[in-house]
Nucleic acid binder design. Structure first.
Length: 314
RNA sequence: GCCUCGGUAGCUCAGUUGGUAGAGCAAGGGACUGAAAAUCCCUGUGUCGGUGGUUCAAGCCCACUCUGAGGCA
């Protein structure tokens, strides 16, 4: 029995996913499901490079503007919403295209990942962080007692993951292994669709050039006003959402920690590094068919992807 | 024209009494299961401005030379 096809378009920031995805969707009367951890936030438009209302008017886009900036959100929630969204498009006879650059969000759909059902426990988290501050290495030692295998896998400095692992162990009394699957998919679980994945890429130098240009464009489009407005609305600069590229650095500028030039340069630099990390993330998924956007035109890329999606979908 | 101080990694610089170099940042590589634009790990990068000389041995000493900054005239 054939599983329905899921179109997936991934790639580093600024490579041109938005345009390509929309063009492919137009040709196929498809709908787009965003896999972007910043575009989910209402009010973060310019800095997150959200497709504009105009770009979205012909093609329904899902999972953009779904929460407020101070909402707590997680991959697990994303996975649930996206799976429901995908199921809904199938039921309406529509082809779904997942498009985005947040590796973990994408993987939550194209790997059979089961996230532990334990929500965040802020009190536990802050006390664990406190403990690590006073006794460095304490978290790793603690996890070793609770879940030897998880402790081996995590570096002793990787605070966030150590905290999360301890959180799960403490609240369930069991280990990570017994709760979830893993990337290697040893459990041989299956996802309910057949992903056809295209990765957009480009020579590093060209990509970096595009990033620099795009950051300048964001500044002329009024990113600073957007950031100012967010702060005026009373949002705490410490919020996870506001650690996003462009927001974090402009907040530092507004707080007088940076000159405007320094802030803009920092945005460019950190965006380049982010793109590198995205590439590292996606590199290991052998199913991805890579398209070098430096070698072919946008139109050709759209042709290739549309054809592949269409043929697979038959 | 003279004097002084510089020229060492992509950048800013360190380099002991001569034993062919090292920090930070940048960069590259990697990890990633409910914060992921987050978090974390690893790694070099060299005609020491050039040419001669002294020396077993020169980034370091000497001469010449190119070049930058400042000062004096």
């Amino acid at each position: 029995m054939n599983k329905p096809v899921l179109g997936v378009i991934i790639g580093p920031t600024a490579v041109g996913k938005t345009t390509i995805s929309i063009e492919v969707a137009k040709r196929m009367d498809a709908e787009i499901i965003s896999a972007d951890s910043i575009q989910i936030y209402r009010g973060m438009d310019i800095g997150s490079a959200k497709p504009t209302i105009y770009e979205r008017k012909d093609i329904p886009h899902h999972l953009i503007d779904i929460v407020d900036i101070d909402a707590s959100f997680s991959v697990a929630e994303y996975q649930g919403l996206a799976q429901a969204c995908i199921a809904d498009t199938y039921s309406r006879g529509i082809f779904p295209i997942v498009s985005g650059g947040t590796g973990l969000y994408v993987n939550s759909l194209i790997f059979p990942l089961d996230f532990a059902t334990i929500p965040a426990d802020e009190a536990l988290r802050s006390s664990l962080n406190e403990l690590e501050n006073t006794t460095p290495g304490a978290l790793h030692d603690m996890l070793r007692m609770l879940d030897e295998k998880a402790a081996v896998r995590l570096h002793r400095n990787d605070r966030k993951r150590l905290v999360r692992a301890i959180e799960i162990c403490k609240l369930t009394g069991s280990t990570m292994d017994s709760i979830g699957g893993d990337f290697a998919n040893k459990a041989k679980k299956e996802i309910p669709y057949e992903p056809v994945i295209f990765g957009l890429t480009m020579q590093r130098e060209a990509l970096y050039e595009r990033i620099n240009t795009r950051v300048d464009a964001m500044m002329s489009a009024g990113l600073l006003c957007e950031v100012r407005r967010i702060l005026e609305n009373g949002y705490d600069p410490q919020l996870t959402a506001l650690q996003g590229l462009g927001y974090k650095q402009l907040i530092l500028y507004l707080h007088g920690k940076y000159t405007i030039e320094e802030a803009v340069n920092a945005i460019k630099m950190e965006t380049r590094r982010f793109a590198k990390r995205q590439l590292t993330w996606f590199k290991r998924d052998q199913r991805i068919q890579w398209i070098d956007m430096g070698l072919i035109s946008q139109r050709e890329a759209v042709d290739i992807i549309t054809d592949a999606f269409t043929i697979a979908g038959r």
